[in-house]
Design a protein around this nucleic acid. Structure first.
Lengths: 221, 221
DNA sequence: TACGATGGATAGTGCCACTCACCACTCCAG
DNA sequence: CTGGAGTGGTGAGTGGCACTATCCATCGTA
């Protein structure tokens, strides 16, 4: 098929497809002439995956490119793939730089960084989790603890243990669903989708539950 | 204190503080002269809260403004506050419009929207959750299910039930921590922080657990 | 052989979170 | 008293990002 059909089948506009081609998100079609190329089902599939990561989940284009590269390169080894994917993903938001220069630390903060890192180490030790040396996710947990403290909440790593237990179960659920998959490429895609695409849904479920239990506890009508 | 001390105490640059003042994120100081105003501890506190929501969590400025307005207006009623906060929050990402016009639905999709909504209704019924009529979070769950299907995964609402149970426990943990708080304003802030700021940390914990269990199951050295 | 579609490339758009520059004015050290 | 740093307020500018618009030579079908 050519680009117009690819656009129709995927729901992505032609200029956007060209943009993805240029930026290396979508592999080029098989060229049939100087200005003609042939696309196949794999391109449709990849385009839909790209739109899910960028449009539904809100990943940046560059993060998406890294994730896709990991999918392509490590189709065989799920553990390696997950490692690459987790490394390529921005853990918190759209990948903004965490701190621009010039904005100094507020008064009295700044020295607590190592402190919080130790807290996270204590938490992972308590959970019995063995991970790579400095996973970005641990940094996020540390930042959260630090922020909580800077805002005056007395929050230490022990408060997170019950949540970590829930996370442990969620992770086991995730991995259970990686068993039944087709070829390595599909399994790789499935791993990415379960990890990445499920994230907003999990948070949304938490919010629904919060609303329910909030009504139960504080409701007055 | 004046603006330079406010900047030093909060770690936010003076132009940014002016920007927040202009956009209504930060209330104006008490004016003492035509071009002089006095800021207090509450401003420092509010600024740190703003930076946490925008910088750490990645909320947009307008979403942050809505959340702060909810905190200010509904300090007394925690359930009402949570409702407003959950309504003001962009559930998935930074609040981008979900679909620009012109990008048509891909082939064969588009009619399944009501279908997925029913699935979410079934899920909340199964969980016994009672929520407001059309919570944005339910929309997110529906979108996720729709995306999964469009990508060829046979994923129905039953697959989400175990996750929903985890979300239920997480929500109860959240609400447990709202008991011991000081004045209504602090309790309102605490509710916001627990709901919003904990989100990246929860996802990060899931990733740490995924890495651990992935190594256990698929590890080869 | 006309004519719309194609691929490739360059430049432009819109949005957003700041950031800069300027101004009249105030404060305070000398 | 005075001069220079600081202050508030405002309009305009910046940089990054995800597209989007416009061209153009060429292709391929009618």
């Amino acid at each position: 098929m050519r680009i117009s059909e690819l656009s129709r089948r995927s729901g992505v506009s032609i200029p956007t497809i060209k943009y993805y081609l240029r930026d290396g998100l979508l592999p080029a079609g098989r060229p049939t002439a100087a200005n003609q190329a042939e696309y196949d089902e794999e391109h449709v599939r990849r385009l839909r995956l790209i739109r899910s990561l960028i449009g539904v989940r809100g990943l940046s284009v560059s993060a998406t490119r890294d994730v896709l590269a990991a999918v392509d390169e490590q189709q065989g080894d799920v553990h390696l793939l997950l490692g690459l994917v987790l490394g390529a993903l921005p853990v918190e938001r759209s990948g903004r730089p965490p701190r621009r220069d010039g904005a100094a630390e507020p008064d009295g903060a700044g020295a607590a960084a190592g402190d919080v890192a130790e807290d996270v180490a204590a938490l992972t030790a308590e959970m019995g989790w063995r991970t790579s040396p400095n996973p970005p996710a641990a940094q996020v947990v540390a930042e959260t603890l630090e922020t909580m403290r800077a805002l005056g909440m007395d929050y230490d790593w022990r408060s997170l243990v019950p949540y970590a237990e829930l996370a442990d179960r969620a992770a086991r659920l995730d991995l259970d669903q990686l068993r039944d998959a087709g070829d390595p490429l599909q399994q790789a895609e499935r791993a990415v989708l379960l990890t990445v695409l499920l994230e907003p849904a999990l948070l949304a479920l938490r919010r629904l539950a919060q609303e329910h239990h909030s009504a139960l506890r504080f409701g007055n009508g």
